[in-house]
Simulated scan of single mutants.
Amino acid sequence: MSVHLWLGFLAVTCVVALSPGPGAVLSMSIGLRHGYWHALRGILGLQTALVLQMALVFAGLGAVLAASEHAFVLLKLAGAMYLVWLGVQKWRASIGEEGQEPADAPVPGGFYRQGVLVNLGNPKAIVFIAALVPQFIDASAPRPLQFLVMVATMCSIDILVMSGYAVLASRFRRVAGSDRAVRLQNRVFGGLFISAGLLLAGTSRG
Rank of each mutant, 00 (worst) to 15 (best):
36 Y>I: 14
92 R>A: 06
49 A>C: 06
48 T>L: 15
195 S>I: 02
157 I>Y: 02
174 R>I: 06
106 P>E: 07
202 G>R: 05
14 C>T: 02
85 W>K: 02
180 R>V: 05
52 L>H: 03
175 V>C: 04
130 A>H: 03
149 V>F: 13
10 L>N: 00
96 G>K: 06
20 P>C: 02
52 L>K: 01
58 F>S: 03
128 F>E: 10
71 A>I: 13
164 G>S: 01
142 P>Y: 04
69 E>Y: 02
168 L>Q: 01
65 L>C: 09
201 A>V: 08
40 L>A: 05
189 F>L: 11
34 H>Q: 15
6 W>I: 05
80 A>I: 14
114 Q>D: 04
158 D>L: 01
193 F>P: 03
112 Y>Q: 04
46 L>R: 06
145 L>V: 14
114 Q>N: 04
3 V>F: 15
64 V>W: 13
161 V>G: 01
194 I>L: 07
192 L>G: 03
93 A>C: 09
60 G>D: 09
52 L>A: 13
72 F>C: 09
73 V>F: 10
140 S>M: 12
161 V>I: 15
21 G>S: 15
169 A>R: 07
56 L>I: 01
68 S>V: 05
4 H>E: 15
108 P>L: 07
82 Y>V: 00
27 S>R: 09
23 G>W: 08
204 S>C: 00
11 A>G: 06
72 F>Q: 04
166 A>N: 03
120 L>Q: 01
44 L>T: 11
161 V>W: 03
191 G>P: 05
176 A>H: 08
123 P>V: 09
153 T>Y: 12
197 G>W: 02
141 A>I: 08
16 V>L: 02
154 M>W: 11
164 G>L: 01
158 D>S: 05
179 D>M: 09
162 M>R: 11
61 L>E: 09
32 L>Q: 10
78 A>G: 13
24 A>P: 00
125 A>Y: 04
110 G>F: 13
64 V>T: 14
108 P>T: 05
97 E>P: 01
194 I>N: 02
46 L>P: 00
176 A>V: 13
162 M>F: 07
130 A>M: 02
116 V>G: 00
54 M>C: 12
56 L>D: 02
139 A>D: 13
153 T>K: 07
99 G>K: 09
61 L>F: 15
29 S>M: 09
128 F>T: 14
168 L>G: 15
5 L>K: 09
42 G>A: 04
110 G>R: 08
184 L>H: 10
106 P>D: 12
111 F>D: 14
3 V>R: 09
185 Q>C: 03
97 E>K: 11
168 L>R: 06
31 G>D: 10
166 A>Y: 03
53 Q>I: 11
49 A>R: 04
177 G>Q: 15
146 Q>I: 13
192 L>Q: 07
8 G>W: 10
52 L>S: 07
138 D>Y: 12
111 F>E: 12
86 L>V: 09
120 L>N: 00
43 I>T: 09
59 A>I: 06
